[in-house]
């Protein structure tokens, strides 16, 4: 019985993780400009990776392999927004410098 519950949880996590990846991809196509597209891909892919890897960790049980997966997850969570920031910044510096509204 426990085994079945575990499999159901793993399946749920994997499927919902893939769902967010798909939404990220659709957003990349549908949204209007570079910045909005970065919103879709960074956010959806971050949670997608989180769900898929959590599913894999539960599938593995508590072992060194699952700890390794957790380390990979932390790196993805750090690098994903950094990459988005680099892309957004280069686009901003080249084309959108005058559009900033002062809110300080």
């Amino acid at each position: 019985m426990m085994e079945i519950v575990r499999m159901v949880v793993v399946a749920f996590l994997l499927i919902s993780g893939v769902f967010f990846y798909v939404v990220g991809a659709i957003g990349l196509i549908r949204l209007p400009d570079v910045f909005c597209r970065m919103h879709a891909t960074t956010k959806a892919d971050t949670l997608g990776a989180g769900l898929v890897f959590t599913g894999l960790i539960i599938w593995q049980g508590f072992s060194f392999a699952s700890l390794n997966i957790f380390v990979v997850l932390i790196f993805i969570w750090l690098t994903m927004p950094t990459a988005a920031h680099a892309i957004a910044r280069s686009e901003f510096e080249n084309h959108h410098r005058d559009e900033v509204e002062e809110g300080m």
Partner: peptide, 24 residues
Amino acid sequence: ANVAVVKIVLSPRISIKPGFRRIR
């Protein structure tokens, strides 16, 4: 954030007003 993104991306007509702001 993801719930918000899913709502925007999957809605039939995308209605957003993007913009930049400098904050403290």
